[in-house]
Design a protein around this nucleic acid. Structure first.
Lengths: 192, 192
DNA sequence: GTTAATCTTGACGATGATGTCAAGAATGAA
DNA sequence: TTCATTCTTGACATCATCGTCAAGATTAAC
């Protein structure tokens, strides 16, 4: 062990996450990553192999953060107010930054036609875990809903969050997204 | 007028649409278009200027087809069964082909960070027109819904369709998408 | 302090995409 | 038939990115 790594790996991954979030897996280049991290392209190749390997690390970090935040939001109050917090959280998450960064998972899902199996699995993993979190949260509701119904509903909610991410990319404002989310919650959870 | 165009423009645009639908605006290259249409790259540049100009023509064609099909589906039966037909239509639309092509509008929306204002406006145009079609369709329902409520609901439905498109990219099957759509319709339209 | 392993750096070649252009082919119009 | 215009073709220059590598720098371990 000599000739020691000159950069902080955690810092590089965090910075890489920022780059990927703003540009997307496909459009972010190794030069972008090198410039943002201050680490030479050659060193990044040496340390990680290729761009996708860096992305996977960055995405894992993102997924942990995101799912933890989602779980916390969903746990607030009863099922309905948990959902409201959750939607607030993800809308802020995707409209943050200038210009807004959007949703990394959604963007990656649409890049995924080109991406590797690894990347696709990460995306599926996040969506599946999110679905479980939501399922658990709405099962707290006192309604006479069956577990199977709750699971289906959880998937509908996940799907709707993906829709919000697309609408954000299409140019809808934070306020507009919030309005849609509110309408959605009222329509779906207010009843049922 | 001499030295006459050697190819059928309608045919070229139709073929280009197929290429863009499968590969996306960003990933489809002029070489792809040349190969698929049988028209040399130079001729395409001469005739249209650049890739985006071809895309805009192809996308306009797509938008007309799509919105007409959406309008027809929504007009079937009462509001609820119109919605059901509509969701059937878009799910087939995005899962068709092997591998499935996905939704061109959604894919373009997510490419749009890189795209021109023109492209972004087309995407917004399709979503806005779709929202109007849906709004009209659900206003037929005999419920005591206000027009403002119907408009908000229409946007929620558009948003959900975008979510389905993302889920398709993430690997969900036609059957799974249908199940979510059914659950969504029941939850949102069954009540309200 | 010497050694050996590892990291860093900058340059290199390969690839694939873009947009342009000159020369030649084709054809409507006179 | 001739002309003028437009289209077609293939080659060209440019650019950005990728991935690799040899030479040098650095440092842990002995």
């Amino acid at each position: 062990m000599a000739g020691v790594r000159q950069f902080d790996e955690d810092e590089v991954v965090a910075t890489a996450l920022d780059v990927f979030w703003r540009k997307g897996l496909h459009d972010a280049t190794m030069q972008d990553l090198a410039a943002a991290t201050g680490v030479q392209r050659g060193s990044l190749y040496n340390a990680y192999g290729d761009k996708e390997a860096i992305f996977l690390r960055a995405f894992d970090r993102y997924a942990e953060q995101f799912l933890e935040a989602a779980g916390n939001a969903l746990a607030q109050g009863d099922a309905a107010s948990g959902l409201k917090s959750f939607f607030d959280m993800i809308i802020v998450n995707m409209t943050d930054g200038s210009p807004p960064r959007g949703c990394l998972t959604t963007r990656t899902a649409l890049d995924a036609a080109i991406s590797s199996t690894d990347v696709q699995q990460r995306v599926q993993g996040v969506l599946a875990r999110l679905e479980q979190l939501i399922g658990k949260a709405i099962n707290r509701a006192p309604g006479k809903r069956s577990v199977a119904d709750a699971n289906r509903l959880a998937r509908v909610i996940v799907t709707f969050t993906r829709g919000l991410a697309v609408m954000e990319r299409a140019g809808y404002s934070r306020k507009q997204l919030r309005e849609s989310a509110t309408t959605f919650i009222e329509a779906v959870v207010g009843n049922a």
